[in-house]
Write a protein that binds this DNA or RNA. Structure first.
Lengths: 108, 108
DNA sequence: CTCGTACCTAACCACTTGGTTATCTAACCG
DNA sequence: CGGTTAGATAACCAAGTGGTTAGGTACGAG
């Protein structure tokens, strides 16, 4: 699977996005990350593995803890991709597009 | 499923992103959209249904054709979400973060 | 009316996903 | 040593996904 697809797939889950949001406050252990969720440990472990495979987090070792840290690099690609569609969601750009189409039709 | 999750899920497939890219050139029929792919008609129909449910395309009726049109509105939410992480992928901001953390530690 | 085209639905398949419980390892703490 | 805590792994399950083929509907053309 390509990087962008893996990133989008990882982000398509509210739990995983919440985990990323939590990690913007700094590294955290698996236990800390699982606190806010009514979910078993293994479920969180699976989410973390998805995030890790997508390159969105990195994990260290510190005694019996496996601290997680945010790595937002793949999100840059997401932002760039989305920005390419900006002119299609911005209403004024849409109207400009219509105008340009009209003008082009009159020209030809 | 919430809007953002639905949007990310819809974007987590290269075929669907390619369809969106094609639609930036203007509306197209299902047949036209399926041309570039070595895939059966129903497979494309399913992808289009996912995109439609995510609000990324709208569909009309014109005789026996069902023209598809891009609706990039949900992508605005994606862009905004990703932008919130900009400071975490930008190296200079990351270094600034480190500095601020150091300063905070020395203060306390 | 008949034929071909565009498209959809239904049924099916293999695989993935998001969750569970039970069990295991690894590390600290007494 | 034994007990507790952090975490991973394994096996399982229900539901979803991405594809297929077969068959159905709606429309325009001859």
């Amino acid at each position: 699977m390509d990087q962008l697809s893996a990133t989008f797939a990882a982000l398509a889950d509210p739990t995983r996005r919440a985990i990323l949001a939590r990690l913007t406050d700094g590294p955290a252990t698996v236990k800390e990350l699982s606190e806010p969720f009514d979910m078993s440990g293994p479920a969180i472990s699976k989410h973390l593995r998805v995030l890790e495979k997508a390159g969105l987090i990195t994990r260290g070792r510190e005694a019996q803890w496996r601290p997680c840290q945010l790595d937002a690099t793949p999100l840059k690609e997401v932002a760039v991709w989305a920005e390419n569609y900006r002119r299609f969601w911005d209403a004024s750009y849409a109207r400009l597009d219509e105008l340009l189409t009209e003008m082009k039709e009159k020209d030809s």
